[in-house]
Each structure stands twice: as structure tokens, then as C-alpha cells.
Nucleic acid binder design. Sequence first.
DNA 1: TTAGGGTAGTTGACAGTTCAACAACACGAA
DNA 2: TTCGTGTTGTTGAACTGTCAACTACCCTAA
Lengths: 171, 171
Amino acid sequence: MKAAHDAPPRWLDRGQQRSWRAYLDGNARLLDALDREHDAHLSVSLPEYEVLVRLSESPEGALRMSVLADGLAYSRSRTTHTVRRMEDRGLVRRGAVAGDGRGIVCSLTDAGRSMLEAEAPAHVAAVRRYLVDVLTDDELAALGGIMAKVAQGCAADPASRGPSSAKSLGD
Amino acid sequence: MKAAHDAPPRWLDRGQQRSWRAYLDGNARLLDALDREHDAHLSVSLPEYEVLVRLSESPEGALRMSVLADGLAYSRSRTTHTVRRMEDRGLVRRGAVAGDGRGIVCSLTDAGRSMLEAEAPAHVAAVRRYLVDVLTDDELAALGGIMAKVAQGCAADPASRGPSSAKSLGD
DNA sequence: TTAGGGTAGTTGACAGTTCAACAACACGAA
DNA sequence: TTCGTGTTGTTGAACTGTCAACTACCCTAA
């Protein structure tokens, strides 16, 4: 695979390096702070909270596992594990899908919905405190646009995705 | 702690929400892609690579554990574990610090330096492919500036940091 | 009808991270 | 000196996520 031209590596210039490092650093600190906030003051972790949000936004409060996984950019098995843990706590329920014998729908229980409503204010406050309120409106919008572009670039690159649809083109 | 005014929560508006989600999504995909690249084609993980870089940039190729940890925004114990694993592979060596009986210096071995030199091109290529080359120069610079601001905001907030210097102000 | 290949989801072993508890040292004050 | 407090770094258990292997199902084509 890949011609492997062994072209001389194009290093990052000073500014690019600074930006990349700032990204790594800021990201680590931001996600740390949010994780910590969830740990300290909420009953669901950040990833679990995201699951609750996605389910709550769907018309029936329910989504197929694969849709949930793709929407959150979680791996299939991560989704399985996370949902199982949430099911054990009664936040979520699993059931068969009508037309497809393989599918599993994950749906919000009343307890799950209550949990989400109870914790949303603290979650949003944390996101504000560490991200939204730190930036100007323009900066936040710029960040969103840039990261969407990055996400798109990753999605376009076959090598960036997990083993799903890997196909081992090398045979 | 905290007056707990219970002010009505200030939700995120539509645009803020989109930006925040784009951030989460793009970030997840980007770091996944880089992790995957390191896993598939390199001999050191991304966090280990960062350790090698920091050490190599220091004049003596050596840094105190705490300096390394703070610089990388890694927890103390993460640093300990990571460095121990790297030491087991001969990439790094640990020794006492001159003036302070508590300190441990972590220094690059020849093998570690060779490893870094060998793997740097592939690492940089991945960072380019998934981040740098996807954005314009202005966008990358903007991203860097924004994330630096975020990092600063987190650093300024006492609650965002780990248990170090926690002090349990509540007593 | 069945064979083959793709998709959905789960499972268990494993690796990396966090947390709490701890040991050892530094340093200032009584 | 000695006590108390803060800092540095380590340890092991618990948790979360990844990977590879697997089951079960869908669907098309021969």
C-alpha cells in the first residue's frame, strides 16, 4: 500500500507547531475539567451524558445502537459497554428493532429522562465556564467551523476510521 | 462551598450548541485518527511520543517528572506509569535529582532518541494529514490562539485541576 | 434454495488512565 | 531540634475504552 516515495518529511514550522501544541494542551485541559466536573457534581459521566442527550433529541427517545455510535463517534463496542452500564442503572432500556433482527434500539427510561433534566443545568454551566464564556461569539463560531472541517477531513480518510468496513484491501 | 444562587440555567443557543458539538466530534475523530496511525505504523503511542519530544527539547534531554507532567498536562500518576513503561522498553532512564531528594529526573536514552528520530516523520505526516493540511494557515493559527485561550481559562480555574493542591477549602 | 458476503451487536481479554492512599523528603516556625 | 505542612512521586485497585473474535442476521445472485 502507498507508493512510499520517502519524500523528505515536511516538518511543521514554528507557528504550526505552536498551534498544534496549543490544541493538544487546551483540549486536554478542557476535557479534564469537564470530566472532573461531571465526576464531582453529577451522577453521569460526560460520555454517558452525551448518550442521554442524543436519545432525548430523537422523536421517540430511542435510537439504534449503530446510529447512536455513529452520531457520537464512539466505537461499536464502546457503545455496547456504555449502554450496558447505563442499563444496569436504569437510565436506558434495550429492545429489538421492528424490521431488522440484528438491530437493537436503545431508549430512554423515565429515570433517564429525569436524570438528564436534573443534570443538564450543571453540565451546561460547566461547558460555559470552561469554553463558551471564555471565548467571544466569533471565536466560538470559528472553533466550531474549524473543527467541523477537521471532522470532515477525518471522515473522508478511510484510514482514520475504526476496523468497521476495513475490507483489507491488500489481498 | 459556592453560594448556589440557583439562578435559572443559561442554555446554549443553537449556534453555540452546534459549535460545542462540532468541537467534541472533530476532536474525537482527530485524536482517534492519530492514535490509530501511531498504533498501526509506529512503535510508540501518541502520549509516549509527546514524552520523547519534550525530553528531546530540553537541553540535557532530561526533565523532572513534575515538569514533564505539568508541561504535558498529564496527571502525576499517568506520568509515572507512562515513564515506567517506557523505561522498561529502554527509551528512557530515571535518576535522582541533585538538590532535591524527592525529585526524579527522566532522561532520554540513546535508544529513545533514535526512536524519536525514526518515528518523527510518520508522526508529523499524520498531524499534517488530519489537521495541518486540512486547514488554511489562518485557520490553524486561529485554532491555536483559541485553544491557548481555553487552556488559560482552565488553568486559572482552581476547580479544573487535579487533586494536586486541592487543599479541601471546605474545612 | 442456498451460498457468500456484508452489517449489527456483543463478548472477554487487555491496555491506559484515574483515584485514593501512601512514603519520603523539604522547609519554615516554635 | 522537632513539629507541622506542603511537595514529589509511587502504588494498586477500579474503571473505561480498544481490539479481535464471534454470533446472528440481512440480502443478493446463482
